[in-house]
């Protein structure tokens, strides 16, 4: 089993080590993922219903659904 894990590890490690044009791409990927998850998600895209229990979420959305009926229809 260790042999298999070791071979898989070496397969990936050798692949990354011997990369030529791929290094530039990995840099792009890592910068992109950092911006997306560490900046955009944290600072600009918090979950709007974050911090609420499921019951509170149901209550909140239900209230929103009732409030948004056009006034003359209510």
């Amino acid at each position: 089993m260790e042999g298999l894990v070791g071979r898989i590890w070496r397969f990936y490690a050798d692949g990354f080590r011997n990369m030529t044009w791929g290094r530039q791409l990995w840099l792009v990927i890592l910068i992109k993922l950092f911006i997306m998850f560490a900046i955009l998600k944290v600072f600009f895209f918090p979950d709007f219903l974050r911090g609420k229990t499921d019951d509170e979420k149901s209550d909140f959305v239900s209230a929103e659904l009732v409030k948004r009926v056009p006034s003359e229809n209510q």
Partner: peptide, 17 residues
């Protein structure tokens, strides 16, 4: 994945519904 971020933030009523 950014579309999924937007569901949670900008379209929360939809996401829950």
């Amino acid at each position: 994945i950014i579309l999924e971020f937007e569901f949670g933030t900008n379209w929360s009523n939809y996401s829950w519904f």
